[in-house]
Amino acid sequence: MSTTASAESPASSIPVFTTIQAYRQWRQAAFDGKHTVGFVPTMGALHDGHLSLVQRSLAANDLTVVSIFVNPAQFAPHEDLATYPRTLPTDLEQLSRLAHPAPHRTPSAVFVPAVSDMYPSGITQDVANQKGTFVEVKGYGEQMEGRSRPTFFRGVATVVTKLFNIIQPTNAYFGQKDIQQGLLLRRLVGDLHLAHPTPAHLHIVPTARDPSTGLALSSRNAYLTPPERARAPAVYAALRAAATQWHSGHSKAHSLAAALGVLEAAAQDGGSEGVQMRVDYVEMNDPETLDIVPDGDTMASRESKPAILSAAVWIGRTRLIDNLILGDSGSILPMQ
Rank of each mutant, 00 (worst) to 15 (best):
F134L: 07
G146Q: 08
T124Q: 09
P103K: 13
K131Q: 13
H100N: 15
E145Y: 02
P101N: 12
S121E: 10
K138D: 14
A109Q: 13
A102S: 15
D126W: 10
M144R: 00
P101Y: 09
S121F: 04
T133D: 06
F134Q: 06
V137R: 05
D117I: 00
G122S: 07
E145N: 02
H104S: 15
S108Y: 06
Q143H: 12
Q125P: 11
A114W: 04
K131S: 12
T124G: 07
M144V: 00
M144P: 00
R105C: 09
E136N: 08
T133A: 11
S108Q: 07
A114D: 10
D117A: 11
S116W: 04
S121W: 03
E142F: 02
A114M: 09
G146K: 06
Q143K: 11
S108W: 05
G146L: 07
M144F: 00
G122W: 06
Q130P: 01
K138R: 15
K131M: 06
V137K: 05
G122T: 05
H104C: 13
G146N: 09
L98M: 11
A109I: 09
L98D: 05
T133R: 08
H104W: 12
G141K: 02
V115L: 06
T124E: 10
Y140I: 00
N129T: 06
P120E: 09
H104Y: 14
Q143M: 10
P120S: 08
K131E: 08
R105Q: 12
E142Y: 02
G141Y: 05
V110W: 04
V112H: 08
E136R: 11
K138H: 15
D117K: 01
P120H: 09
E136H: 04
A102G: 08
T106R: 15
V127P: 05
P120V: 11
M144A: 00
V135I: 15
S121C: 06
P120Q: 10
Q125G: 03
D117F: 01
P101C: 08
V135Y: 10
T106Y: 14
E136V: 07
N129Y: 00
T124K: 08
A114T: 09
F111N: 02
A109S: 14
H100Y: 15
S116A: 15
A99L: 02
L98K: 02
Y140W: 03
A102P: 03
Q143R: 11
Q130V: 01
V137I: 14
V110K: 05
A109L: 12
E145F: 01
G132N: 01
M144D: 00
A109R: 08
V115A: 12
A114G: 10
V137H: 05
I123Q: 10
R105A: 12
F111A: 01
D126R: 14
Y140C: 00
K131A: 12
